[in-house]
Measured scan of single mutants.
Amino acid sequence: MDGTRTSLDIEEYSDTEVQKNQVLTLEEWQDKWVNGKTAFHQEQGHQLLKKHLDTFLKGKSGLRVFFPLCGKAVEMKWFADRGHSVVGVEISELGIQEFFTEQNLSYSEEPITEIPGTKVFKSSSGNISLYCCSIFDLPRTNIGKFDMIWDRGALVAINPGDRKCYADTMFSLLGKKFQYLLCVLSYDPTKHPGPPFYVPHAEIERLFGKICNIRCLEKVDAFEERHKSWGIDCLFEKLYLLTEK
């Protein structure tokens, strides 16, 4: 054995408090879109979701699917093309516009009456609605409950000090017999300040354990050449399924 860690023996890093005071403002996230600093976007979609999607959907149609901090995630069109209703929230209007443009979807925009100064973008087909606002303002819009949440790049982007508020927001959107698919990253948080932030299993239990059954479905090596600039040499991604207790 050469000592290389595999996707099945990932350790939890003990120094989980080192990132707790890290803060990125909404304006800084918007600047990332304006300046093209969106390496977190996956042009081909998320491979773990693609692998498990049909198993999760079980042939159902007409589900309501929520994408927190959606950006221009191509997976939104995957669900819409399968007959589901997609709702996303994203602070960057540019990111939302790029989604519709890159997916060749016509759309309209209208003000969100409950949140002055914000807009919702709706596909002409009517099954994709993307709200351009802070996720913490979203419950004011009465958008209803969801059958499924796809959380990739959301919890790991939320400032650590806001995670409890974020989890409570997610709980307010969950319908009966929900499936909450959650991706988190595992790396040494003493070497990279984030975002994306390190979210250990214990944190998921703390945030969601009282209401959800929590199961880790898969762990994969997600390290890429660009991650060397973070000062790390190891990065794993974990896919969790959260269901109603």
Rank of each mutant, 00 (worst) to 15 (best):
L48V: 11
E93F: 05
N142H: 12
T101W: 08
M76Y: 02
A73C: 12
G83I: 01
K219S: 15
E28T: 07
A39G: 11
N104P: 00
L207C: 14
K122N: 04
L155F: 07
R152A: 11
F99G: 00
S123V: 03
F100Q: 00
P189C: 06
G62R: 14
F79A: 06
A167R: 11
T55M: 11
S186A: 15
W230T: 12
T6M: 08
L241Q: 10
S229K: 00
L174F: 11
A202M: 12
Q103G: 09
H192K: 04
G175L: 07
V89G: 02
F40T: 06
L24A: 11
S123M: 02
V184N: 04
E218H: 12
E11N: 00
T169Y: 14
I91F: 04
Y166E: 00
P139T: 15
F56T: 08
F67T: 03
F79E: 01
K50D: 09
I135A: 04
E102T: 03
R206N: 01
A157E: 08
K177W: 03
D15E: 07
T38A: 09
L182H: 00
W230S: 09
S129P: 00
Q47E: 11
F67R: 00
T118C: 05
Q30H: 09
K72N: 02
K245Q: 09
N142W: 08
P160N: 01
K219I: 02
L105F: 03
T243C: 15
P193W: 03
I214A: 07
C234G: 11
L174K: 02
K164W: 13
R163T: 09
G126R: 07
G161I: 07
Q47L: 14
V34T: 14
E17G: 14
T118A: 10
A154Q: 01
K191R: 08
K245L: 09
L217E: 04
K122L: 06
A80G: 02
K210V: 05
W33V: 07
Y198Q: 02
L26D: 08
D31F: 07
E203L: 15
L53N: 02
I10S: 09
L242Y: 02
N127G: 06
S124E: 08
I112Y: 09
I158K: 00
R64G: 01
I112W: 06
M170F: 01
C216E: 13
T55Y: 03
R226G: 10
D54P: 14
L94K: 15
I232Q: 11
I91C: 08
G88N: 07
E28G: 13
S85K: 11
V18A: 11
H52G: 08
V65E: 00
A80D: 04
S7G: 14
S186H: 13
S123R: 01
D2S: 08
E205H: 15
E90S: 06
V65H: 00
V86F: 00
E27K: 04
E75Y: 04
V86D: 01
R5S: 12
F121A: 03
A154N: 01
N127I: 04
E17M: 12
R152G: 07
S186W: 08
Q97M: 15
R163A: 04
C212Y: 14
R140E: 10
K122E: 03
R152E: 03
I158T: 12
V220Q: 14
R226D: 15
G36N: 06
G62V: 11
L130V: 13
K51H: 14
E17W: 10
I214G: 01
E205G: 10
S125V: 10
F100T: 01
L48I: 11
T6V: 13
G62H: 12
F66R: 00
K20W: 11
L69M: 12
F79D: 01
A157Q: 09
F67M: 06
D221T: 06
T16C: 01
E205K: 03
S129M: 06
T243G: 04
P68L: 00
Y198A: 08
D2C: 15
V120T: 10
L182Y: 01
W33Q: 08
C234R: 08
L174W: 11
F178G: 10
E218Q: 08
S106E: 11
K219D: 04
I204V: 09
V89F: 08
P200S: 13
S108Q: 03
L26F: 10
T169R: 09
S14W: 07
G231E: 12
K122M: 05
M1K: 13
F223T: 15
Y13T: 13
D233Q: 14
P195S: 02
V184S: 14
C132F: 02
R163L: 06
F236N: 15
A154F: 01
V120R: 07
P139C: 02
L242S: 00
F208R: 00
G144H: 07
R82S: 11
P200I: 07
D168Y: 14
R215H: 14
V34F: 14
I232T: 05
T113W: 12
A202Y: 14
D221K: 07
G209I: 03
G83S: 06
Y198H: 03
F100L: 06
H41A: 07
E244F: 04
Q30P: 02
H84S: 03
Q30T: 12
Y13G: 09
S229H: 12
S134N: 12
G231S: 10
H41N: 07
D188Q: 06
T16E: 13
F79K: 00
D151R: 00
F40Q: 03
V65S: 00
D168K: 12
K20D: 06
F121L: 07
E237L: 09
N21T: 11
Y198G: 06
E102V: 13
Q97W: 07
A39H: 08
L155G: 00
C133R: 01
E75C: 03
I135L: 14
Q19V: 05
E225V: 13
G59S: 03
S134V: 00
T190C: 12
W33G: 06
I135C: 07
H227M: 12
T113G: 11
F67Q: 01
C133Y: 00
V156S: 07
D81R: 05
W33C: 08
S7A: 02
R82H: 12
I214Q: 02
F208I: 02
P195F: 03
F56Y: 13
T169S: 13
E205W: 06
G153Y: 02
K51T: 14
C234S: 14
R64N: 11
H46Y: 08
D9Q: 02
D15H: 15
K122A: 03
Q103P: 01
L94R: 13
T16H: 05
C212L: 08
N35S: 15
F223L: 14
N35Q: 13
C183A: 07
Y180A: 01
F223C: 09
F79S: 02
S92Y: 06
L63A: 11
T169P: 00
Y240W: 06
Y180C: 01
T16V: 08
E90F: 05
D162L: 10
K245F: 14
L53I: 12
M148R: 02
C183P: 01
G88I: 01
F178W: 14
I135H: 03
W150M: 08
R64A: 02
Q97E: 02
Y198V: 15
K164R: 08
K145W: 04
